[in-house]
Write a protein that binds this DNA or RNA. Structure first.
Lengths: 341, 341
DNA sequence: CTGAAAGCGCTAACAA
DNA sequence: TTGTTAGCGCTTTCAG
């Protein structure tokens, strides 16, 4: 049984498709009588507009792509959870994709050929993308980049100041009297910019405190997961001069590290204090709860969606904006022990 | 600068749009010479098909909606992570939405009017949906329901046998000698079917063991989050006759309960053993790690996607299938202590 | 194997 | 205010 079309409604109501369209979309002025007639026909046929046809006629898909590296990483899941309702509230649908942090995949997504008018814009949280990849992107694609990368002026960027935040996290540990602070998560290669900013913050904190950095305490991990934190921590504890504190580049890294510390009978924070990054929910209810850098996710989502839709709706190119989101250091049990908030 | 269309390519190549379409889609046989000409033109113009137009002509959107209650709940995030690549591998895009477990929202999504050919089918993981809501759904929408609800024959259903799994979880606790096992997460009202099946399994385990059920140990929680587990656990411990084991209706509930137990200085599992449900990653790295019912998420995703796409591709109605996915009980530290796998 | 042409269902410029 | 009509860009039937 074929779906009723605008035409069917028009025929039934004895008006033109144009008028029905006006009624459906609330355009222009329609006389009350006509409107009533049309609405009755609409009702009678149980008409629902065909979005596909509308999209084609409009030249817009009404869809926005949101792309993150991993959906099952709590930070990105929480971010997505914040973004989706906001996009939908503005009348757009959300197409979701994950890249597994694969640089080629990320680069492909923003390249010209990839899109086929399937989405009107994209919010991308890249992991491996290089500046060169960004340079080769589709210049007509409204794009908001999330995370630790500054805009080159042609797309919007939303994120927190990672260097400052990392510096604060490490300063917190220093202020607790810790002097052998491990930095867990460095990635000193092209696709590790996010990690490198945290390392920069780590160095900055030491510098400001007039303390030297023990390079051997800066540990690399392939990713920012629990297993990475666990593996790194185990290695650190096997050294003759283990650290008395850990700055994990994500809360998952911190949780993995804590897991190993407790397994080895060490106390957190008494023996080793740990601070993480992201403020995911897991860290709030773990034992001990995890001190962390808490980026304001609502603000990030709000800003990203707002920037993107503004750009889509204004069509033509707009100059890229840099939007720096506030963050806070949340001190929980993993650094200040029981009685922490 | 307007995008090149099929027509432009045809003009440049000196053939008809029909032929270009054939080449682009690999349809029919095209003579090598013609093909070469067309491909050159394609290349030259950097042509990319307009998906919107193609969709309209095909009467299909090439999109699948995947709807879960909460994106930031690890179980659903992990499920989504498993589903998305599989859908994309079959050439479809994924539209994601979350319902916040709101029954009205869920019911609306499967109602006739909601869709506008925007998606060709839906995978829905309902929380509050009633049988009546399901009865009122759009009969033409290919639908796969995930979770604890049996099919009425007109849609597919994929899930594990919750009663059996819950029974096994509780039997595990009984086999460890526990006799005062709390069940945390019951929801004895219309929208709590999922919870009720777990409770049924809890009862069944006792029945099989020939043991009575202490009704006061079956505790209700509004949701299955950490905070619910924590709150319930606190109340249980305030009783004069606290439990010696807990069956949490999700791993989050279990983690929340463990958190409170440790805070109060109790040992897990020595004083109180805890088992959860879902096998989320958090439970594997927490201290102690959480024993749990592990549904086979890959199989769930695989089955759901396969059923849905099969239905979409075969168009006409197919009889609904019930697909029962295997699960396992994973005994970790929260029940068997250190040395657990 | 390829061309001509009729839609898919909706929007919107142009008329009336 | 409302009707007429020409697309949006692609697919596909029917000829040739």
């Amino acid at each position: 049984m074929a779906e009723p079309t605008l035409r069917d409604v028009a025929l039934l109501a004895g008006v033109s498709p144009r008028t029905v369209s006006n009624v459906v979309n609330g355009y222009a002025q329609v006389s009350p009588q006509t409107r009533a007639k049309v609405e009755k026909a609409l009702e009678q046929l149980d008409y629902r507009p065909n979005v596909l046809a509308r999209n084609l006629a409009n030249g817009r898909s009404g869809q926005v792509a949101v792309v993150v590296p991993y959906l099952d990483t709590p930070y990105f899941a929480e971010l997505l959870q914040a973004i989706i309702p906001r996009v939908r509230a503005r009348g757009f649908n959300v197409l979701v994709d994950q890249t597994d942090g694969d640089r080629a995949h990320e680069a492909e997504l923003i390249r010209r050929k990839a899109r086929g008018f399937l989405y009107d814009g994209m919010i991308l949280s890249p992991l491996g993308l290089s500046q060169a990849d960004l340079a080769g992107r589709d210049p007509d694609l409204p794009l908001v980049i999330l995370g630790e990368r500054s805009s080159d002026g042609a797309f919007d960027h939303v994120g927190i100041d990672d260097v400052a935040a990392s510096c604060e996290a490490v300063t917190h540990l220093l202020s607790l009297g810790r002097r052998r602070i491990a930095a867990v998560g460095d990635q000193p290669y092209a696709t590790g910019e996010a990690a490198q900013r945290r390392t920069a913050g780590y160095r900055l904190a030491h510098e400001r405190a007039g303390l030297p950095v023990d390079e051997s305490l800066i540990v690399q991990t392939p990713r920012f997961n629990r297993v990475d934190g666990a593996t790194a921590m185990a290695r650190l504890l096997d050294r003759p001069d283990p650290p008395d504190a850990v700055f994990g580049y994500s809360d998952l890294v911190a949780l993995g590290a804590i897991r190993v510390l407790l397994e080895r009978g060490l106390r957190v924070p008494e023996d080793v204090a740990v601070v993480g990054y992201d403020d995911i929910e897991d860290g709030r209810y773990s034992t001990p709860s995890v001190s962390t850098i808490s980026p304001d996710k609502s603000t990030i989502a709000e800003a990203a969606v707002d920037r993107l839709l503004r750009r889509i709706e204004s069509r033509g190119p707009v100059t890229g904006e840099e939007f720096v989101v506030p963050w806070t250091l949340v001190a929980r049990e993993s650094t200040v022990g029981r009685g922490a908030p």
